[in-house]
Every structure is written in structure tokens, then in C-alpha cells.
Design a protein around this nucleic acid. Structure first.
Lengths: 94, 94
DNA sequence: TCTATATATCTATATATCATTATATTCAGA
DNA sequence: TCTGAATATAATGATATATAGATATATAGA
């Protein structure tokens, strides 16, 4: 693996490497699409925190979103990240 | 996924989420066992840097090592991390 | 014991991340 | 246009991480 790919791969891992971001990704892996409200409910943490983490995942190109009225619906952009999720789980609880 | 598992999974991702650490893991995925010297050669960066990153990977329980004379040989402890590696690659270059 | 080699640790500085709180934006409906 | 609901951003302080350079430790062999 050349340094450039390592850089890129590290960035993806880093984007996922946070408990709340992982839980968000998992929720969206199961549900296809969820608004911020629902994500908050699922994960049980304050709105600002969820929005911040969503912004990071959006910025890193892992999630995308669309607005519908006052709601903003998030979904996974690159489905490969779901495999990544399973890999970590298997690592942790084989 | 409960918060506890998310915590654990995030810790693993975080440990891997660094270009040099990724390159170290990859080198060991191919070679089974390598001393610090060889790892330096492969990756092409200073000894102190490699040792620092090795210490982190050791601490996070991803690598283990044994000493043989003046050399210290490192190897991957939980092979599942290799799958993780492949997952990130596929994510980056599908 | 002295030296060379291999590896590990320490220190300092810069930078990034985290959670919290407060505030801003966007939109729908009265 | 005003209000409330949903979401986003900003500002803060605390903590963690990165990176580089200097130094320390461990071991083998003379």
C-alpha cells in the first residue's frame, strides 16, 4: 500500500472511529433513511451532538442528506462503509 | 449496537486510523513477523516514529512482540484486523 | 567493562477533537 | 409577519494526538 492510499484509508477509519458516529452509521445501515430527530431518539444524545457528528460524516463523504420541510433526512452515501462496520464488529466480538 | 460495543469498536478503528499504523499492519499482514528494522525499511520512516506507532498498536492490543537478541519481532495479535484492512481498501478503491 | 546496534521512551510544541452551552438558520402554519 | 419546531453552527475550555528531536535502555560481543 502506498502512502497516498494509506492516507485515504486512515481518513475513512478516522471518520468512523467515534462511538456516536458508529451508532449513527449503524442506524442508517438498518433504516435506509432517517431524520435527525429519529437519530437522536435512537442514540439518545443531545441534538447538538448529533448534528455535529452528522456534519463530520457529511463532510467526510460518508453520509448525504436531503431536506423535506423542516426535516433533514440522512442516508449512507457509500454503502461500502457498512462492510467496514461489520468488520469491526467481528473484530470486537468474533 | 449498544454504547459499550460502539465504544470498543471505535477504539479499534481509532487505533488503526493512522497512515503509518495502517502501513505497519499491512506489512505484518503479508509477512507474519517483522523486526522494527525491517518495518522501518518497508515504510521508509525514522526509527523513533515507527517505535512510537508500534507502542500504540501494542498498547491497543493489535500487535504483540517478542525479543530475540537485540531485535524485537512484531506480529499481528488478532488476525481479524486484516479483514478490517481489506474493508477499508475496498471502500477507498472499490 | 566498553562499544556498537537495535529499540524504546521522553520532552516540547503544535494541532485536533470532544462535550457543552448558547445562538442562528430554515421552514411551516396561524 | 410572528411563532414554534427542526436542524445547524459558533464559541468555549478540557483533553487527546501528532510530530520531531534528543536521550535512554537492552543486548551481544570484544
Amino acid at each position: 500500500m502506498d502512502a497516498r492510499l494509506a492516507q485515504k484509508a486512515a481518513a475513512v477509519l478516522k471518520a468512523a472511529a467515534h462511538p456516536i458516529r458508529l451508532q449513527i452509521i449503524e442506524a442508517l445501515a438498518n433504516e435506509e433513511e432517517l431524520c435527525v430527530n429519529k437519530i437522536m431518539e435512537r442514540i439518545g444524545c443531545p441534538q447538538a451532538v448529533v448534528s455535529q457528528q452528522l456534519a463530520i460524516l457529511r463532510d467526510k463523504n460518508i453520509l448525504e442528506c436531503r431536506r423535506e420541510g423542516t426535516n433533514v433526512f440522512y442516508r449512507i452515501k457509500n454503502k461500502n462503509v457498512i462492510h467496514l462496520l461489520h468488520c469491526v464488529y467481528n473484530h470486537c466480538e468474533p
